[in-house]
């Protein structure tokens, strides 16, 4: 079929552009920066029995290694647990793996101004890792419409100095230990 010369040039440039985009994304996702994608590695959970779940039954932070922590978060209409009624506390300079799920409808979990962002879907666990370099405070908000109170669903992450965090963490451990 007859294709004009300018059209051929344009077509070739378009293909170069497209392949270039795919290459940069493949580079960002695998090699180089190795940006962590949300995928199916978090596994699944039964939303109906979330309260009896060993982790999501009492969500919060858990030390797993030197500067390594796991955080379990439950999103439900219209709170993050933890996050809303008390801040989600993490130590400065730590690597934290989040496990986020939803108890009722689909929610969002967005750390404001960063690319830490995931959907929280009932039955699914979103797993992603975040490095907290500096002490400070971040906002969390729900960015998926979840009902009439969606706009009040917010929380905070408190990045604490290591010593401060340690004493808080110890206190927590003792409290839960005492209850048992």
């Amino acid at each position: 079929m007859e294709i004009h010369t300018y059209e051929k040039v344009w077509l070739a440039l378009s293909l170069v552009l497209i392949v270039g985009f795919i290459a940069t994304i493949a580079y960002g996702a695998s090699a180089g920066p190795g940006i962590d994608m949300i995928d199916d590695k978090g596994g699944t959970v039964d939303p109906a029995t979330l309260d009896e779940h060993p982790k999501f039954g009492d969500p919060g932070i858990e030390k797993t290694g030197e500067n390594q922590y796991d955080v379990y978060v439950v999103a439900r209409q219209f709170v993050f647990e933890p996050g809303t009624s008390e801040p989600l506390r993490v130590p400065e300079g730590s690597t934290v793996t989040f496990h986020v799920t939803a108890a009722d409808v689909i929610h969002g979990f967005e750390v404001v101004g960063t690319n830490a962002n995931t959907m929280a879907i009932p039955g699914q666990v979103a797993e992603f890792t975040v490095e907290f370099d500096e002490a400070g405070e971040y906002g969390i908000l729900c960015n998926e419409y979840c009902g009439s109170g969606h706009h009040v669903m917010e929380g905070t992450i408190l990045v604490m100095e290591q010593s401060e965090f340690d004493s808080w963490y110890e206190q927590q451990e003792q409290q839960t230990g005492g209850e048992n």
Partner: peptide, 10 residues
């Protein structure tokens, strides 16, 4: 549209 959905492999 589901890049951020858990439960779908990368």
């Amino acid at each position: 549209h589901q890049y951020l959905d858990p439960g779908i492999a990368e």
